[in-house]
Design a protein around this nucleic acid. Structure first.
Lengths: 358, 358
DNA sequence: ACAGTCAACTAAACCGGTTTGCTAAACCGG
DNA sequence: CCGGTTTAGCAAACCGGTTTAGTTGACTGT
């Protein structure tokens, strides 16, 4: 009396039950016009009552497409999802993917290997975010021969890409801070998730250049020790800010390369009884949805996060749908500074005669 | 001179090139011990230099597993990702999935049909969040015969599930608000994303019961008009709050069923020149990472969001890995009220002699 | 009455791997 | 030197669909 098998029915079962060939069943679903109308509907009835659904993997194999887009990140998904930036970005990708009937598959390093994760994923193309050219596995990844769109890294010019004006955005933030009189700043950068130990993400390099440009104009140099890098999360911001304080750093302004870090930094400062923006000004980067709602409302560099995801998905889909890989498109989105309440003038007692060095 | 074909190499190509059979190539990768050591390594060399990677779809087909977990939501991904709750939840799922070498595939209604999206997805099991028993497509979904873990819906007892003490959490919030003297409250509920027009999510029903329980104890009834439902996002909270205000509602406290909505409500109130918590108190639900950082810091019902994701993934994996479907486990996580600064006593001028009705 | 056309359907090949069952050669003890 | 066991590798079947290239029989026109 054991259950014979609770297997899902296969196409052959439907064919047998309906007294037709597998081909006919396939036609009933995919090209009903090739069957007599009543045959087609009879087959569909049988299928329905058997609870038959075509096996998606088998279908993919023959059709050579998966109707799925990948989102690849060099970080573990766990760190990625804790940054609101990523949620908004995914939202953008998801909107376009959904519109075109594609599903979404997230790819992160498997047992430390991105290439391995890639080779396991059944996708038609991939949006790679923050994949720097120096990543040890890019070569293996590109060899998969999949359509790729790069986000926030222009380093592989043969692929389409979407990024933002990091330098300009950071420069605007730096100039504003400099104009408030700040000369002693701390930069919080995002760490590259390189498997060979933390390095510096491309994004970090570009934004740092923007900050430095801005301060160079007022004759101030931002020394290397004034930049700390860590994970782009609230916790990361807290940790970095505390470390800086313990190291005796007493900047009048903090330039964070992500809103999450900025929020973390403000939290740490509050715990240290430091007033923001009275004692220390804080600027973020991203302008996440919550930036206006934190306390104090965050001054930050806006980037169109959702649109970034949308553009990336759109670019990818044009490559995926027509197989036309010609001239990869590079799209750069604008940034702009949004001044809110986390920034203010240098406190009087900290006004230095800095800028001129004597 | 046209490129012959830029195809990725197949197993047969490697076999030919190495002068062995397909079987041997397969063995070289999957059971090298069945081959002479030098044959195996020679094959792997050839494969390496040809850039061969086994086709993931073909592999799935024969191995009958995909090494991928699905996360299913009845809402569009675009609405889902805009709620920070979901990011944290996904983080929990992702941690466990990664640990076990599984990828993550997000499933949302395709052309309005969840069942269709399900049947396209190549996954070994699925975490279904907020899928109420009344959903028109549950029957089709369960027929896929996949392992399922339900989150925030206990309605299908034959599947394992993870949820939280919604009633208790809401009751705690309600009691606290009542104890502050509030008698005139507005409830912001989350809308069920039923394809047949917006209805009420299971979660909403349970939390509403908790609120009502609490107020019943002080002899106050929350009438139906005092509950508005909408999408669980900041924008949703803004919209609902404004609508309530326009409708002439002047509650002294707002009970929101999601932090995102609570934040939206506070934002709308600020725009209306209403002080929180001076004029109106606001309570959220979820305790997202940012809840302590908004202005004012949000009083809310804490639930272990990440752990919820982790538990769901763990439960799912035990079912997926041993095929043992016996006794589905139901796990309920605790909630607790976290009092911060968005709540306070009823303003003096609004103190009614309510509670006794004459 | 007969070649030609069309409609309705099917057998077999194919997608790209894995797995089973088998064979040939090498090895082994007596 | 011989039967039995291992070792190394292969051919073919299989996973569950789709697609190509027919096949069959009814219908058409002359």
């Amino acid at each position: 009396m054991a259950e014979p098998r609770a297997q899902r029915p296969r196409i052959a079962d439907v064919a047998r039950e309906a007294g037709v060939s597998k081909t006919a069943v396939s036609f009933a679903f995919n090209s009903p016009e090739r069957l007599a109308p009543d045959t087609a509907s009879r087959i569909r009835n049988v299928a329905e009552q058997l609870g038959y659904t075509p096996h998606p993997v088998a279908r993919m194999l023959t059709q050579r497409q998966t109707m799925t887009l990948g989102v690849l990140t060099p970080q573990a998904l766990s760190v990625i999802f804790s940054n609101p930036f990523f949620g908004a970005f995914s939202e953008g990708v998801a909107v376009i993917a959904e519109e075109h009937g594609y599903g979404l598959h997230f790819i992160s390093p498997l047992h430390g290997s991105l290439a391995q994760a890639m080779s396991r994923a059944t996708i038609d193309g991939v949006v790679a975010v923050g994949l720097s050219a120096g990543h040890p596995e890019v070569e293996e990844i590109r060899r998969a021969g999949l359509p790729i769109v790069l986000v926030d890294s222009t380093a592989l010019p043969e692929y389409a890409s979407v990024d933002i004006d990091d330098v300009g955005g950071a420069r605007a933030a730096g100039e504003y801070i400099a104009s408030l009189g700040h000369r002693d700043v701390l930069v919080l950068g995002v760490e590259a998730p390189a498997p060979g130990g933390p390095g510096q993400a491309e994004v970090t390099t570009r934004r740092l250049r923007g900050y430095r440009d801005a301060f160079a104009r007022v004759g101030v140099e931002i020394p290397g020790e004034r930049m700390l890098a860590g994970p782009a999360s609230i916790a990361g911001g807290v940790a970095l800010m505390n470390r800086a304080w313990e190291d005796g750093l007493r900047p009048t302004a903090v330039l964070a390369m992500s809103d999450a870090m900025a929020i973390g930094a403000m939290h740490a400062l509050r715990d240290l009884r430091v007033d923001v923006p009275g004692d220390v000004s804080v600027v973020g980067f991203d302008d996440i949805d919550l930036a206006p709602h934190v306390d104090p409302p965050l001054t930050t560099v806006h980037q169109p996060i959702r649109r970034k995801g949308e553009e990336a998905a759109r670019l990818l889909l044009t490559v995926v749908e027509r197989r036309d890989l010609a001239k990869p498109e590079h799209r750069r989105l604008e940034t702009r500074l949004i001044v809110r309440a986390s920034t203010g003038p240098v406190p009087n007692h900290r006004k230095e005669v800095a800028g001129d060095r004597h």
